[in-house]
Amino acid sequence: MKNQYFGDYRDMFKYDLIQEAMKKNKGFKRFSFIPMLTDFKECNDGNKRYYNSEKIEKRPGSGNTDLVGYLRDYNDKVRDRKNRDLRHIRDYFGAYINIEIFEPDEPMQGKYFVNKNRSLYFQAIPDIYLESALVFVDPDNGIEVKNSSKKHILYQEIRSLYERMSDDSVLMIYQHFPRQKHEEYIDRRKEELGQRSGSKLKPLWISDNEIIFFFLSKGQEANNIISGVLSDYSGKYPEKCRNG
């Protein structure tokens, strides 16, 4: 995740889905956001901000008028991408749910996520963030690839978080679609994720054909609730969403 991405229209999908999951699973005491924050880069990624346009119609999250209004107002107020700050999502969620955003101790870790300090970063995540929580990890690109970088979360890191989580917690992971056939990619990635995370339950997923969110549950009850959330959510946006 980069601060410059905050407020992109994909955030409608991301934060609306999180809000739905938190609302429907009463066992969640907190939303724990692990952003894997990386430094600014001059590019046009994460710059789709059409909140005053028909381009957002029928997109996942577009029906959440409070969230859309918040993101629109934020983008109108903070136009310079270098000044955007994902921590401002607290301003929105504070009225709805308990949110924790992991920020590593700068003298130990530094402000940004980097490869050489990967282990320190994940070890520093407080245990309380993983208790009765929806734990969302948001790397730039997604899950481990052959030549992983700071843009990816490694399978060993996923497994470590999963093993540390309480039985009523759920791990949610951001994944950007690579240039592969979507169905084949989801099937392969889901199989790998299930095996290498150590999960006894099959991963769940939801996608808008641009990005995917994978979910790993430890307990059957939480898994059933998330499965229902994803099914209902896809039903709200049938032209864009699918899940499995």
Rank of each mutant, 00 (worst) to 15 (best):
D45H: 14
D127N: 09
S32R: 03
E106Y: 14
M1I: 07
Y237P: 12
F40P: 04
F31T: 02
A95D: 15
Y96M: 06
F215H: 03
L67A: 01
E239K: 13
H176T: 07
F6G: 00
L161D: 00
M172R: 01
Y112E: 14
G110W: 00
E106V: 14
S148T: 07
N243P: 04
L204N: 03
K23C: 10
S207F: 04
L171P: 03
S166C: 03
R30H: 07
V78H: 14
F213Q: 05
I97F: 13
S199Y: 06
Q156N: 08
G110T: 02
I99S: 04
I186F: 07
S53E: 06
P107A: 00
E239N: 11
V145A: 13
D11Y: 05
V68P: 05
M22S: 02
K190Y: 06
G110I: 01
V229N: 04
H152M: 07
G198W: 05
G142P: 02
L161N: 00
K41N: 08
M1G: 04
K236Y: 14
S227A: 14
N52K: 15
I212D: 07
A133H: 00
M165H: 08
Q109M: 12
R90K: 15
I153A: 02
D167V: 11
Y237V: 07
Y5M: 12
K181D: 15
M1C: 09
S207K: 03
Q180M: 14
K240G: 03
D11F: 08
R79H: 12
K150W: 09
I56W: 08
Y233L: 06
Y5I: 12
Y121K: 01
Q175Y: 08
N3H: 09
F177H: 15
K236A: 13
E42N: 15
K240Q: 11
D91R: 04
D39A: 06
R81I: 06
G94F: 11
D168K: 13
S148K: 12
I153Q: 03
E100M: 00
A21Q: 08
V145H: 13
Y5V: 11
E144W: 09
S119Y: 14
R84L: 09
E221R: 15
G244A: 02
K218L: 03
A222H: 09
K146Q: 12
G228C: 12
S234A: 10
N75F: 12
D8R: 10
L161Y: 04
K29T: 08
G110S: 01
G94Y: 10
K181T: 10
N209W: 13
Y51M: 09
S132D: 15
S62R: 01
K41G: 05
L134Q: 03
R164I: 01
K14W: 10
E191K: 06
E191R: 06
H88D: 15
L134Y: 02
Y185K: 10
L37P: 00
F31E: 02
A95W: 12
E144P: 08
Q123E: 14
K116S: 14
G94P: 01
K236D: 13
I97D: 06
S234F: 07
F136S: 07
K58L: 08
D168H: 06
R159G: 01
P35D: 08
M36G: 00
K82I: 07
L134S: 00
C241G: 03
G219P: 02
M12D: 04
I206Q: 01
R159F: 05
L171N: 04
R49Q: 05
E57K: 15
G94E: 13
L67D: 00
K150Q: 11
